[in-house]
Design a protein around this nucleic acid. Structure first.
Lengths: 180, 180
DNA sequence: GTGAAACCGTACTGATCGGTTCCGTTTTGT
DNA sequence: ACAAAACGGAACCGATCAGTACGGTTTCAC
């Protein structure tokens, strides 16, 4: 129980922040649920804000890896992005996109958390653009931005509706877009 | 200074909640910035949560009225929804959609605030559906849900980018959708 | 085996949270 | 003019916030 304090902090914080929001989760709760001592926390992180940015960093890497893997599993076509989203929307713990939630909650665009969230989105755009290039879709740059707009709209809608339907709705729109 | 305490509370709270988030704004700040006494606040509202739902109610009514008016001013076609959004995105105080921000921040779907936010979105869908009917667009029900997904995607994107570009991007997608 | 490093738990700080209560003043209806 | 209602200000309440300090324990490298 005395090793990996940092990893446990990151894991517990990620779960709690995602489920309840960043402001809603105090350091107290993260410590008690992770079993990490208070001093150990401040030995690993300068403060709560540093923990938040570290969580967002890890989330960015892991989420893009997951998305790439699932799209590839479905066949690798850009439209399969929405099949991956549908899978995600159906999971029990789904509560939207960490980056979107962070930007709407923290408000200050200059804060490290918001900067990290914005960076995540640009990286996702790059990922989508590469998928579009691989599929020989014309104007992949602009198309990628359109696709991410659709994905974000689907995420917000799925959070509100509590069903994966929004993924299929967004997929239908994307199909119309590619056919045009 | 001793009249309209309720109205001043609602106005101040709406501004602060929208700019900084609900959790980030304490009752203390609302009182000092509105000039309303603490006792007066709890005479008008059962608590902070009641104030939040009242603010969301007012916002819902006012925002739909504003949207209808702006769409009509642009010509009344459903595509003009995105012209209205572009106007909104360009305003200085734009910080996304109150309903989306509330749902991502409060997390609990059963809370009065989230219920009110969800209700707002369904009312917006109804508004969009009526616009589509008036324009003789086929399948207005499903189209309305697609349009609102596009609008929500545009709102989230505009919040991230800080420019009105997302409105034009969403408009382009909507045009492709109507042409298909 | 021994010392250093990492660890957990507890007690504490000052600030702020939402909410209650009381008091004296101002506004309003009649 | 006068009473009732609405009001602002301030002193409180217990709880929780992020962060610090200290003391005793476990882990690990040499």
């Amino acid at each position: 129980m005395a090793v990996n304090a940092r990893a446990r902090l990151l894991s517990t914080a990620e779960t709690l922040f995602y489920a309840h929001g960043i402001r809603a989760v105090g350091v107290e709760r993260i410590l008690s649920e992770s079993g990490v001592g208070r001093a150990s926390f401040y030995r690993h992180f300068a403060g709560k804000e540093a923990l938040v940015t570290a969580v967002l960093e890890g989330r960015d890497v892991r989420w893009r890896a997951w998305l790439s893997e699932r799209v590839a599993a479905h066949g690798g076509h850009p439209l399969h992005l929405f099949d991956a989203l549908a899978e995600r929307f159906a999971t029990q713990d789904f509560r939207g996109c960490v980056a979107i939630n962070t930007m709407t909650e923290i408000a200050d665009p200059a804060s490290p958390a918001c900067r990290m969230a914005a960076l995540h989105k640009t990286r996702v755009i790059d990922l989508v653009e590469q998928l579009l290039r691989d599929a020989d879709v014309p104007e992949p740059g602009e198309r990628a931005r359109q696709f991410v707009l659709l994905m974000d709209g689907a995420i917000v809608t799925a959070l509100r509706e509590g069903t994966p339907d929004a993924a299929w709705r967004a997929r239908g729109i994307a199909e119309a877009l590619l056919a045009a």
